[in-house]
Write a protein that binds this DNA or RNA. Structure first.
Length: 192
DNA sequence: AACACGATCTACT
DNA sequence: GTAGATCGTGTTG
């Protein structure tokens, strides 16, 4: 029987911006939960004042300077965890913030961790996504492409990718750089 | 040693 | 639309 399908999305991690685009459609798994990534943001280093890596290595950001495909998880606003995938060129630093995803499996666990919020509110923001999937500092430095309990696998590539300004960036800090990317057909699952 | 603040979310007006 | 929560981190004194 003949099958026809678009080529699957595969993470290309040799540049943060390219990685942000290629991670759209990929599927993030954590035990019984899985979700299709629909919103990402690229953060680079030298040329990106909004990036945690802009001012060089610190204890928090050190994995951004290391091997690509590793999880950079950090704590924000005293309440939320944020998941990034390390991606950069040789001798550089960078990462991709995973901002939103479409729930695929593990609905019960997500609903419980998100306190029974509606499905649209489970993964529609970087903090919500980590809460729904149970991602915390324990996952800092983990190789997401190694097939572990927390991993990223290829998925259905978007029909169309839309680029916009990044969210929550102060004026003058690369505020107008168009490094946020969304699946043009996934509006239902996006943040904000 | 102290301080200001953030790649956010929720609840309430 | 706006404020409050809440704390680790980086920066400054």
């Amino acid at each position: 029987m003949a099958t026809s399908s678009a080529p699957p999305s595969r993470p290309v991690l040799t540049d943060a911006v390219e990685a942000a685009r290629s991670l759209l459609g990929c599927v993030i798994h954590h035990f019984e939960c899985s979700a299709r990534i629909v919103e990402t943001e690229a953060y680079r280093a030298e040329d990106d004042p909004a990036s945690h890596a802009h001012r060089g290595v610190t204890k928090r950001n050190r994995v951004m300077f290391g091997p690509v495909g590793v999880a950079y998880v950090y704590f924000s606003y005293g309440t939320h965890w944020m998941l990034n995938v390390v991606a950069h060129g040789e001798g550089e630093a960078g990462a991709v913030l995973i901002r939103a995803a479409e729930p695929l499996t593990g609905f019960e666990a997500m609903a419980e961790r998100r306190r029974l919020a509606t499905p649209e509110a489970w993964l529609s923001g970087p903090g919500k996504l980590c809460q729904a999937l149970g991602i915390t500092h324990e996952h800092y430095g983990l190789d997401l492409l190694a097939g572990g309990d927390l991993r990223i696998e290829p998925g259905r590539a978007p029909r169309e990718i839309v680029a916009t300004k990044r969210i929550g960036i102060a004026h003058g800090r690369g505020h107008d750089t168009q490094w946020r990317f969304v699946d043009g057909d996934a509006e239902r699952w996006l943040s904000r």
